[in-house]
């Protein structure tokens, strides 16, 4: 097991399962840059990064739930509820921006805790619980807004949504912080380890003195927090408290972590892989626009991509098994 530290680092990089994805991303960027002169324009990069900002938060919100071996169908509904609450609190109640933002995040955490608490207490599958809460959160959203957007968004929020430094949108700051925080959570904290342990084998984790309830509720709370952050970012970007925010998040939320190598049964996720998954999806979206292909095909391609990603994972798994039993 002894080997010089330098080669160890290289080896550990080579062992990462996201290396292949990185290669795909690099090739895709090179291909697009060569074939589409507009691709590297400052404005196009800005558009790409805006798309990435929102999608990566959505994907991470789902990824922490995949880590514990569950699913969260209500990511979009939580994001939507946090978004309209954020906008509504500013417009109707007149709360200052920071307070409204904190309230939005708190609503996300609260919704997440509710998901986690019900799932753990009832012992039912998170799939069905979050399907129900999806409807509840969406219902609250529609009840509050009567399906009408809040138009009166504070100027500071609008400015934040529009601000850019060259090709880089200022709002990228939020997802970057979130990515680092989730990476640290998953790789360096006891809570993250416990979440992965519960996802990998809840029986073994429990008998090893890990509290399953704590891990499950924490994961859902973090998921809710990230979804709320995504929702409020969407408000800043749209300059509008749109009640439909979150309606189309479901596919990207699963696609990116799965492309990134997450094991849907739980216990293994990759933050870097998930980010690369988001990059790939964002690039595909962008390529369709640049090539002037009907954007309605995005859905179709995304579906095919998910199938390809799980197919590749499964293929590796079967090969691994064959190797072990050889």
């Amino acid at each position: 097991m002894a080997s010089p530290p330098g080669s160890l680092v290289i080896k550990s990089i080579l062992r990462q399962d996201w290396l292949g994805l990185l290669l795909v991303v690099v090739l895709a960027i090179a291909g697009l840059a060569l074939s589409q002169p507009n691709f590297l324009s400052s404005f196009n990069i800005y558009v790409l990064l805006l798309g990435f900002s929102l999608s990566v938060l959505i994907a991470l919100a789902q990824m922490v739930i995949i880590a514990i071996g569950q699913m969260n169908l209500s990511v979009g509904a939580i994001g939507g509820l946090a978004a309209i609450s954020f906008a509504g609190l500013m417009e109707v109640v007149g709360l200052p921006v920071p307070l409204a933002a904190l309230a939005g995040l708190a609503i996300g955490i609260l919704c997440g805790c509710l998901n986690g608490w019900i799932t753990h207490t009832t012992g039912l599958s998170a799939f069905i619980i979050t399907l129900a809460t999806l409807s509840i959160f969406k219902g609250l959203n529609l009840g509050i807004t009567e399906a009408q957007p809040f138009y009166d968004i504070a100027p500071a929020v609008k400015a934040f949504g529009n601000a850019r430094m060259g090709p880089i949108p200022v709002m990228l700051v939020a997802p970057v912080i979130a990515i680092i925080a989730v990476w640290v959570l998953m790789n360096r904290t006891v809570l993250g380890r416990q979440m992965l342990a519960v996802g990998g084998n809840p029986n073994a984790a429990e008998l090893s003195g890990i509290s399953i309830r704590r891990a499950v509720v924490a994961a859902h709370a973090i998921s809710g927090l990230l979804a709320a952050l995504a929702g409020m970012l969407a408000v800043a970007r749209l300059q509008l408290g749109q009640p439909t925010i979150g309606d189309d998040w479901l596919i990207i939320s699963f696609a990116a972590p799965v492309i990134g190598g997450a094991v849907l049964a739980g216990g293994h996720v990759s933050v870097i892989g998930t980010c690369l998954g988001v990059v790939i999806v964002t690039l595909i979206n962008n390529a369709l626009v640049l090539y002037g292909i009907d954007p309605f095909f995005v859905q179709l391609l995304l579906g095919a991509l998910i199938l390809a990603a799980v197919g590749i994972n499964r293929y590796h798994e079967v090969q691994e098994q064959a190797r072990r039993f050889a």
Binding site: R193, A197, G267, H268
Partner: peptide, 27 residues
Amino acid sequence: AEGLILIHGVGRNIAMTIWSRLTGVLG
């Protein structure tokens, strides 16, 4: 079923019982 987390590494499986004791700065 109850002893190991099969998809995790050997090191993690052994350290599972003592993670909270291994933390340093900021937990």
